[in-house]
Amino acid sequence: MILPSAIALGREFAGARFQIAPVRGLSVQDGLVIGSVLVLIACYLLPLGAVVALSFLVPVPGIGNYWSIFQNATVHAVVGKTLWISSLTVGLTLLLGYITAYALVQAGPVARKLMLAGVLLPLWISVLVRNYAWIALLSPGGIVNSILIRWGWLDQPVSLVRNSFGVVLGMVHYMLPYAILPIYAQMARIDSTLPHLARSLGASPRQAFIRVFLPLSRPGLAAAAFLTSIMSLGFYLTPAMLGGGKTVMVAEFISIQVTETLRWDIATTLSTLLLLVTGALVWRFSHLLELATAKPKT
C-alpha cells in the first residue's frame, strides 16, 4: 500500500536530514511525516486518483473514453499542437540555455554572480506579470515595434505576440532558468583544461567543443531536456494569454472541457493520459536529475 511505504520513505528523508536516532514506536518525527503524507494524499493523491477513476467511470464504466479519445479529431489537433509547441520550446530553451550556461562558466566570479542573479530573478516574478510584460513589449503598438518603425526598419508593425511565436517566446522565457541551472551545474564540473588539452592534441576549437565539451556536458543537457519537456506539456497560462486564442494546448483544452463544455469524460481521460505520459517520463528519466547533483567519480 502507498501509505506505509510513503511513511518509510519520509522517515528515511527525515532521518538523513536531521540525523535523529531511531526510536521504538511512533516518535514526533513519525507524526510529522504521517501528517505531511496525509496532507499529500488529501491534496494530491486523492484528487488525482479521483480524476483517474472518473476517466474510467463516466459516462459509462469501461475504457470507452480512451477508445474515443484516440479517434477524436479535436483532441488530435490539440495534442499535435501541444507536442509541436513543446518540442519547439524545448529545443529553443536548450539552445539558449546551453549558450547562457556556457557564458556563465566562462565568466569571472563577479560577472557570474550578476548573471546568475539575472537568471534566477524571473523565478520570483509571477508568470502573469511576465506575460503582460511580453504583451507590452511586443504587441503591434508595443515598445519593440515602435522602435523598429521609428528607426525605419519596419513599415508595418509585426505580430510578435498573440500567435504561436508569442507562446513559444513566453514559454522559453519561463523555462530558461530550469534549463540553465542543470546545464551550468554539469558544465562547472567539467575539467576546464580538457578543451585546451584537446587542442594541443590537434583538435580545432570546433572539434574540441564537439568531441570533448559537448559530450561531457550532455548529462546536464539531458536533465534540462527532461525538466523542460515535462513542464512544457502542462503549460496553461502562457498559451492562453500570448496565443491570441489560436494556440490551444492540452492544459487549456482540459480546462475548457471542465468549466465550459462540461465534457468531464474527455477532460479526465486526457488528464489521466497527460499524467501517465509525465509519470512515465519521470520514472524513466528522473535519474538524470540526480546526475546533475552527484559527485564526480574518481
Partner: peptide, 9 residues
C-alpha cells in the same frame, strides 16, 4: 594555435 604545433602534452 596549440593544434598547429604538433606538441604532445
Amino acid at each position: 594555435a596549440p593544434e598547429a604545433r604538433r606538441f604532445g602534452v
